Amino acid sequence: MHRTELADFLRRCRARLGPTEVGLTPGPRRRTPGLRREEVAQLAGMSPDYYTRLEQARGPRPSRQMLTALARALRLTDDERDYLFHLVGEEPPRNRGTSGHVRPGLLRVLDRLYDTPAQVITDWGEVLAQNAMAAALVGDITARPPGDRNIIRSFFTRRDDTPGIFPSEEIEEHARLHVATLRAVLAARPDDPGPASLVAELLAGSEEFAAMWADHEVAIRHSTVKRFTHPVVGTMELDCEVLLSSEHAQRLIVHTARPGSESAERLELLRVVGLQNLAPRDEESPAG
């Protein structure tokens, strides 16, 4: 592990980013350019002390999970992410299918959508990034352990233990869309271990999934209208726009309300309320 080079690289990447570029408020006047260390730590989901030690070339060797979080927090390009992995002595991710690395440009779009729920997911349901509004609407999925961030898995394995975010009469429709989408993805990339292992897991662990899988329905997620129920602001009817990134099989999903509607008023209330009134809300299936 090249600790000195890693520390210098992290400092330079932090210095080139401003708070508004990552969705943070500027706050008081800053004596030096770039993000503060605690801001990078917040974005990466690690303790400020841990990140500080990395920049001081005295930290422990970061895990692959931590390196991925740092690459996302610092808005690294694919080449910069690979360089970060090499500095630590790790082989960069070489996924045969989808990549967990969100392109900086896509993250910048996400950062600027401060008043509407938006998130980046893979085409087989892995949540890669969320803004604060998405976390307020469906729960902070990125705060979960890495193996527990798939919305399709959650829908079929945790639904009985969590509050619903969709009206009960629409649950089957969402379930069938999840199954049909996963079948289309698996057919397109049969050698991708991610969706293949998820299908095998759900076939073995969910009778509901197995029954719907046997129907052999195929569909791809498209823009639509969805209704969400929220414990604080109530039911909202939101337009769901799905923007595709074919290079990494990722999707930016944005939810908006029609101007002047009751749903628009409730969405604005959700923005004001934010996360402060949000109970643990592990979604059945967030906006996917």
Rank of each mutant, 00 (worst) to 15 (best):
L238S: 04
V22T: 05
D78G: 03
D115I: 00
S168M: 05
R271Q: 10
A57K: 09
L87M: 14
L54S: 05
Q42I: 00
T181S: 15
Q65Y: 04
E169N: 13
L202M: 12
E91M: 12
P145Q: 05
D239M: 08
Q276A: 14
V88G: 05
R183T: 03
E208K: 06
R183W: 09
G125Y: 10
E247M: 08
A187Y: 01
R75F: 07
P19R: 11
A15W: 02
E5D: 15
D123E: 13
F155A: 13
G100W: 04
Y51W: 06
S197M: 07
T229P: 00
G18C: 02
G105C: 02
A135P: 00
L177H: 12
D123S: 13
G105S: 14
A118V: 04
T229G: 01
L113R: 05
M46Q: 10
H178R: 08
E21L: 12
I220W: 11
R159S: 14
E55I: 10
A175M: 07
L17Q: 07
P231K: 12
V273T: 13
A7Y: 10
R159M: 12
R81V: 00
H2N: 15
V233L: 06
D215L: 15
E126W: 05
P190T: 07
M1N: 05
V127C: 11
P19T: 09
G89F: 13
L110R: 11
W213H: 12
R227T: 15
R144K: 07
V127W: 06
Q276K: 13
Q65F: 02
H255Q: 13
